[in-house]
Deep mutational scan, measured.
Amino acid sequence: MVYKIRDKETGKVYEVTIDEETNEITVYDVKTGKPVKTVNMTIEELKEAGYEVEPV
C-alpha cells in the first residue's frame, strides 16, 4: 500500500510503500519516483519516530 509520510520536524514529505506482512517500507524520491532506501518498521513505529502517515 502507498502512503505519504511527513517529517514533523523538517516538513519533508516522502512517498513510501509498506508491505503489511513483512513491515518492509520502501522510501521513494517524490521528484524522480526512484527508491531511496528500504527500512523495516511498522506504521506505529513511523508515527513514534515523528512522522505523520497518510494513505494515498
Results as ranks from 00 to 15, higher is better:
D19S: 08
G50H: 03
E21F: 10
Y3K: 02
V16F: 08
K47D: 04
T42D: 04
R6F: 09
P35Y: 14
P35L: 13
E21C: 13
V36F: 11
T22R: 14
E45W: 06
V13Q: 07
Y51H: 03
D19L: 05
I25H: 01
K31Y: 14
K47R: 12
P55M: 12
R6V: 12
E52H: 08
V53M: 07
K34H: 11
K4Y: 15
T32L: 05
E44K: 11
V16S: 01
T38F: 11
M1R: 14
N40G: 06
K37C: 15
T17H: 13
V53F: 09
D19W: 06
N23H: 10
K47Q: 11
D19P: 00
E20S: 12
N40T: 12
T10Q: 01
G50I: 05
E44Q: 11
N23F: 07
P55D: 08
I18M: 07
N23M: 08
V39F: 15
E52L: 06
V27C: 15
T32S: 09
K34V: 09
N23V: 05
K34M: 12
M41S: 06
G50E: 02
V13N: 03
V2C: 14
I18W: 15
V39S: 04
E48V: 09
D7M: 04
N23D: 07
K34Q: 10
V30S: 13
P55S: 12
V39Q: 04
T32P: 01
T42W: 01
V27M: 15
E45S: 08
G11E: 01
M1Y: 12
E9R: 14
V53P: 04
A49L: 13
T10Y: 02
Y14E: 00
T26P: 00
M1S: 08
K31V: 15
N40E: 07
T22I: 07
K4G: 01
L46G: 00
T17D: 03
I43Y: 04
Y3M: 11
E54S: 09
V27E: 02
V56G: 08
V2W: 15
V2E: 05
T17M: 09
P35Q: 08
P55F: 11
E52P: 02
V13G: 02
V53T: 03
M1N: 10
K8T: 08
E24S: 14
I43Q: 02
D19M: 05
V30M: 11
